[in-house]
Design a protein around this nucleic acid. Structure first.
Lengths: 173, 173
DNA sequence: GGGTACATGTAATCAGTTACATGATTTA
DNA sequence: TAAATCATGTAACTGATTACATGTACCC
């Protein structure tokens, strides 16, 4: 079985939690969605595949909601560690829908306004998150948040400049 | 027919070129790949779909490579303009494979080294592109490049900081 | 004329999304 | 006990990727 990014996310989340039901995974994945979003259908299917491949153990509850409860096996832990230890040089394209429109000649000012507002909101959200961050939390998520902060600041700077520039250009006309 | 992002990219590229064969589109799409990559199989199939929907006109060469040559129809131009005029507030998650590993607890230093190198290379590439930019070029691609520059600078700053920080932590031990 | 790079396409697969369907628990 | 919401799953679809297949032009 080929392991996808979603596989590794599920392995990583189960590792963090110790054990997890699909619903637990769904909740945890929601907290990760600004970095890498995962659909609920995937989060319910993927652990089954991973269990079939021997990377997770599965335990079924009898009564009630008949939850499936997953844990890492030794093989799963090894697979996760191997993935973490690959110092990948890959990075992805920006894939930004607003920027794409700008590329193809969209009118900059209205676009800049709505983009700026959206990114300012996201930046505030991150700042609040960072301010409330517990000192004893693991470092990984904190570093990811710092990266997010940096990029949101950059987006705000970028769109603000676009807005001001095109505003000035309009006034000159 | 539902128009996807790839549809709009193809419409945008045909608009820029006036007319284009699938191969032309492939070449142009390569220049866009840092912003939004498109596979060659898509670039050969999509114009056919758009032509069937009446958004592109198709003209077949007789001899030689029997190229298909596409142009925007009035409907195609309208669809492109409508898409450009939507001031979207959407933006996507970071989806960065390195950052994801950091999130799940990867050893920061080796990762930071290879990421830093990759982003420095990309940043240099963008800077050279910007330096050689013709003055009479349309503004859209230039703005997209400026966004790319900003984000690459931010990535370099981020990974450099991670590297230095974890280097210092290691020396303290 | 034989090799290589360029060019063009389709078939098969697969991951991811959307939509549907239903059961369990809580609350008014 | 009815309604709402929480929780759990699967089926169908579709967009994207990978792999395959082949033809054309150019260069040595």
């Amino acid at each position: 079985m080929r392991l996808t990014t979603v596989s590794h996310i599920v392995l990583g989340l189960v590792d963090q939690a110790g054990e997890a039901t699909p619903y637990d995974l769904k909740q945890m994945a929601a907290g990760l969605s600004d970095l890498w979003s995962v659909q609920h259908a995937q989060v319910y299917r993927e652990p089954g595949r991973l269990a079939a491949a021997g990377l997770l153990s599965e335990e079924k509850e009898e009564g009630g909601r008949r939850r499936r409860r997953f844990r890492l096996t030794a093989a799963g832990r090894a697979a996760l560690r191997a993935w973490l230890a690959e110092p990948t040089a890959d990075f992805t394209e920006l894939r930004d829908p607003g920027l794409l429109r700008l590329f193809f000649g969209a009118d900059a000012e209205p676009l800049a306004r709505v983009q700026l507002e959206a990114h300012e909101r996201k930046l505030r959200e991150y700042e609040e998150l960072a301010a409330a961050w517990p000192d004893d939390a693991p470092p990984g998520p904190r570093l990811a948040l710092e990266a997010g902060l940096g990029h949101e600041r950059e987006w705000v700077r970028f769109w603000r400049q676009i807005r001001d520039r095109s505003g000035a250009a309009r006034r000159r006309r």
